[in-house]
Design a binder for these strands. Structure first.
Lengths: 205, 205, 205, 205
DNA sequence: TATGAATGAGTCTTCATTCAT
DNA sequence: TATGAATGAAGACTCATTCAT
């Protein structure tokens, strides 16, 4: 490995790191104000640079959300796929998936908020965000087959309206990103445990 | 009632009706595209008039959301207050509140979506939307005291993390507006029943 | 004179009166806020009718100023012409013209303010207001020949820069409309007298 | 002074210079067409840039007039204050103030025209322009005490209606900006001299 | 005569984006 | 890498004007 090459790698790595920093900042601002209502200048201000300077790193405002969301979704699906590949029972899988979801929120809070609030509008806007719909589809597929298997395996009550249960679980999990604060009273895993207790056993005495 | 007075009432009523029509249209568009991403022209197009014409009826785009949200919240609180005044037990009150919530979604689907998606940003934007925060506060107060009473009365499990339960219930209910379609497979009351079964008894067999 | 004709005249007179009323109102508002900054609606509000209703009486906002200014100028020139036709000496003519000018201000305060502030812009705007330039021209002609005659007659100092004197007199007179209030401490004729004393004899002891 | 600091100063100065250029252009256009009747695009056209580009330098059309007027008034009062601090007799002070006024017109012709035509409307419009009223107040105070002192010192005739004299002088001076052209037949100081001769000694032979 | 709803052109302003330095 | 000046399209809003009633 020549020094030359080392340099290049160094710069490439530095550049990637800077991008990640800027994206984290952008995600926070998008989450706080909403994507459409956020100006590129606000993102730049938050990053301590000038508006135009962002365009050295990114093609457009759109490509920023794009990268924020796809990075998050890739990581999330990687985690889900590991769980699904583990060959657990339906109930254990559900628990593991929920736990992974709250961990995702823990690591990508801002991205999750953006995902929740903007994904529908973005998907409607153009081809570029088709992967959001695809992810939705996989998500529904995963949950529906999980719930159906759970009923077959006798883990879940047979009288449930499964599509309804799916919808409630889906939304409830992600919506937690709106109030969750990393380092707060409850850690992600605690929240997952409480949430599972509630969903599985109900709140009734 | 003199004919004169009838006339005046007639036009005032007609005007109010027109406003309501336009607001319903606006709510649909805001719900579909997001408030910030919606142009006044899109609202006008949907209403079949020109952009400028909206300003004969409303001061600003902002005052449209304002009226959409405050109308919805007023109706919702009126329903809640009726329930709370009925002197039911904690569990029955919770059931009734949930039922009323889904009825609200049934009647004001678009407004609820707007409320869910934009309320935080709007409240942050200015004094004018302070009532949104106030409503949030009352909502939390209502739910927390309801849950606490339920635990005291032995209706709910004593080991629950109440603030957490409150958050999940709050968000889950409203989030249903995102997929609920009036006249669809399930009526509002059916959904409420299913939802209550899930929350109260859990999905576990 | 048939009753029919009497009716028609009655209505015609009533209509003319209403126009005059509305024009007086319009002149006040134009004077107070500036022509360009005044909306037709503000004029209508001041008149106690709705915006669209003004168009029953007038073709356009422009035709309102037009009528306000031309009415004022016609009256003013009628008065000037009477003075000029009287065959007085230069000094007496100057005095009489000044007196008539302040009487014009007394009767048409608002119109004078509008004339002073807007006439240049209006004249530049279009053919329709060419008579404003024509009036300016006649005004200058009148004053210059008056001043020259005064110098020849030995009434005015021979060392004056006449174009300069003309300009100062012209502006000073009309500018008084900005602060003059009919029925105030000083009547129009008093102001004229004081003004003449100042211009003719100076303020020096 | 480090090169670094020099750079910073250099760009700050360049920016200030650009602002000044643009404001001078804006003042000309506002003076020519009237503030309300001037579009931002007209100002931009005159400056050779696009309408939106002005907003890189200024917050709003309003802040442009604001800066035009306050800059002019500050300079004018600085000059007046120098004169007033010189401890001259009333008559000499009056002469010096008049001379400074015509010099102000010479240097800031457009700004003076804007001041004369728009100041009242702007002051009525909002808090932001309160300084215009304050300047008016100081102006009246200065002139009235100057005139009163002149009468006491025997420099001016004792039979004058001082408030009236003040009003005529005030308006006459500024109104000259409407026809004055720098580099024309008469220089500012010549005009001041002629004007003083007229006001002090009168035009009578 | 007046109303009130609507029009449509035009205004101020914002903002994503570009580009020379 | 970042700056800062500018672009240009688009957006919210205004307003003179029209017209059916």
């Amino acid at each position: 490995m020549s020094p030359r090459r080392r340099d290049t790698e160094g710069t490439a790595a530095a550049r990637a790191e800077r991008r990640a920093e800027l994206l984290a900042t952008a995600a926070e601002v998008f989450a706080a104000k909403g994507y459409a209502a956020t100006t590129v200048r606000q993102v730049a201000d938050a990053a301590g640079i000038l508006g135009g300077s962002l365009y050295y790193h990114f093609d457009s405002k759109e490509s920023m959300v794009d990268e924020i969301l796809s990075t998050f979704l890739n990581e999330m699906w990687a985690a889900y796929d590991r769980v699904l590949a583990a060959g657990l029972g339906a109930r254990e899988t559900v628990e593991a998936v929920i736990v992974e979801s709250f961990r995702s929120i823990d690591r990508h809070r801002a991205a999750v908020v953006v995902y929740q609030n903007e994904s529908r509008h973005l998907a409607a806007a153009g081809e570029r965000f088709a992967y959001l719909l695809e992810s939705d589809r996989r998500f529904e597929e995963m949950w529906m087959s999980l719930l159906e298997r759970g009923v077959r395996e006798g883990a879940f009550r047979p009288d449930l309206d499964l599509p309804l249960v799916y919808r409630f679980i889906r939304d409830t999990v992600w919506v937690a990103a709106n109030w969750y604060r990393p380092g707060g009273r409850l850690a992600a895993d605690d929240i997952a445990k409480q949430y599972l207790a509630m969903v599985l056993e109900g709140i009734q005495a």
